[in-house]
Design a protein around this nucleic acid. Structure first.
Lengths: 109, 109
DNA sequence: TGCACGCATGTCATATCTGACATACAGTAC
DNA sequence: GTACTGTATGTCAGATATGACATGCGTGCA
């Protein structure tokens, strides 16, 4: 993740790395965000690997470009459900999803 | 999973084991259900390990007994989001969640 | 027997999520 | 410069999920 992106995410209300000390997040909340960001990141990876634009992926999953952008940004308005369904539509298996979560959200350097 | 439980789930509209051949599920749909059932099962395990009733867990996660029952049943009306949040509230880490998904839904014998 | 506990299932008002749309911005090509 | 592609972000009506409640069912126990 580029720093610029990280700054935007943080400005948008999320903390990216080890967030909890700065914001007042409970362990559950930060674990939830960690999972969401891990899946968001994996979604973008998979989309790019498949050489798809957000618009094209949106058509595939019967959604819209703006919602794909929000998914990849880990926007608070998108559910983990939706991100997972999109991953599965891109051919990910449950084990792939598990691996993505295990790998965790990409940490800042 | 007891057979009786399995029968109930199936009667409720889900197929449990290798479902897709019987119902007309797409690979994404069955992967989604597989993940949901894996997490449902893990939720029940964790709750029982902690010796909590559904009612007690409901209070912990600011929900209701009926919704916990639906989560554990993998009811179509509950999102994976909610099940995951409950797991995290029970102290599961993202890696625990990943392991649960990797392990998969308990297969019928 | 009655009564309490734990769990399942159905319903419903409301809270939350979603897709669609508009719009803005960066990069590239002309 | 314009035009086009890909992406980000804000808004909103309609769709979906949620908590709460009622109720039923089985089990244990006095």
């Amino acid at each position: 993740m580029q720093v610029s992106k990280r700054v935007k995410l943080e400005a948008a209300g999320w903390k990216v790395g080890s967030a909890d000390e700065l914001l007042g997040l409970t362990p559950e909340e930060s674990a939830y965000i960690e999972i969401k960001l891990a899946l968001s990141h994996t979604l973008r990876q998979r989309r790019l690997n498949n050489k798809l634009s957000q618009f094209e992926l949106a058509k595939m999953v019967h959604s819209s470009q703006s919602r794909i952008a929000k998914m990849e940004a880990g926007d608070p308005s998108v559910s983990i459900d939706l991100i997972m369904k999109s991953l599965l539509a891109l051919g990910a298996s449950p084990k792939d999803v598990a691996k993505a979560i295990s790998a965790g959200a990409p940490q800042a350097a």
